[in-house]
Amino acid sequence: TTLTVNTQTYTFTSEEEAREFARRYGAKTIRKTNGTWEVHG
């Protein structure tokens, strides 16, 4: 199964959650914005 996250942004309140998600789905960018963490595919 392949998950494609081209134009979607996922927002997390903790860096740990964001990094775990990025690691699991191979997202390329993690960015902190206004106190939340954004993961970009």
Rank of each mutant, 00 (worst) to 15 (best):
T1I: 10
T2G: 13
T2Q: 13
T2M: 11
T2W: 07
L3H: 14
L3T: 14
L3R: 05
L3C: 15
T4R: 08
T4S: 11
V5K: 09
V5E: 12
N6E: 12
N6Q: 11
T7N: 10
T7R: 05
T7D: 09
T7I: 12
T7W: 12
T7L: 11
T7C: 15
Q8T: 12
Q8K: 11
Q8Y: 13
Q8M: 11
Q8R: 08
T9G: 06
T9P: 08
T9I: 15
T9A: 07
T9H: 09
Y10M: 07
Y10T: 04
Y10F: 11
T11A: 05
T11Q: 07
T11M: 07
T11I: 14
F12D: 00
F12Q: 00
T13Q: 10
T13F: 11
T13Y: 12
T13E: 11
T13S: 11
S14R: 04
S14C: 08
S14Y: 03
S14V: 04
S14L: 04
S14W: 01
E15P: 02
E15V: 05
E15K: 03
E15F: 13
E15A: 05
E15W: 12
E16P: 04
E16K: 11
E16T: 08
E16I: 09
E17G: 02
E17Y: 02
A18N: 00
A18Y: 01
A18E: 01
A18M: 02
R19C: 15
R19S: 05
R19E: 10
E20V: 04
E20Q: 07
E20H: 04
F21R: 00
F21M: 03
A22G: 03
A22Q: 03
A22D: 01
A22V: 03
R23L: 08
R23I: 06
R23W: 05
R23N: 07
R23Q: 09
R23C: 15
R23V: 06
R24I: 09
R24F: 05
R24T: 06
R24L: 10
R24G: 03
Y25G: 02
Y25W: 10
Y25I: 15
Y25R: 07
Y25S: 08
G26I: 02
G26T: 02
G26K: 06
G26M: 04
G26S: 05
A27C: 15
A27W: 15
A27E: 03
A27F: 15
A27H: 13
K28H: 14
K28F: 10
K28Y: 10
T29L: 15
T29R: 05
T29N: 06
I30G: 01
I30N: 02
I30A: 02
I30E: 04
K32I: 08
K32L: 13
K32S: 07
K32V: 09
K32H: 11
K32F: 15
K32D: 03
K32W: 11
K32N: 11
T33M: 10
T33E: 13
T33N: 13
T33F: 09
N34G: 07
N34D: 13
G35D: 07
T36W: 07
T36N: 08
W37F: 04
W37T: 01
W37V: 01
W37K: 00
E38L: 08
E38S: 03
E38D: 02
E38C: 10
E38A: 04
E38G: 02
V39Q: 00
V39L: 02
H40W: 12
H40D: 12
H40A: 11
G41D: 07
G41L: 15
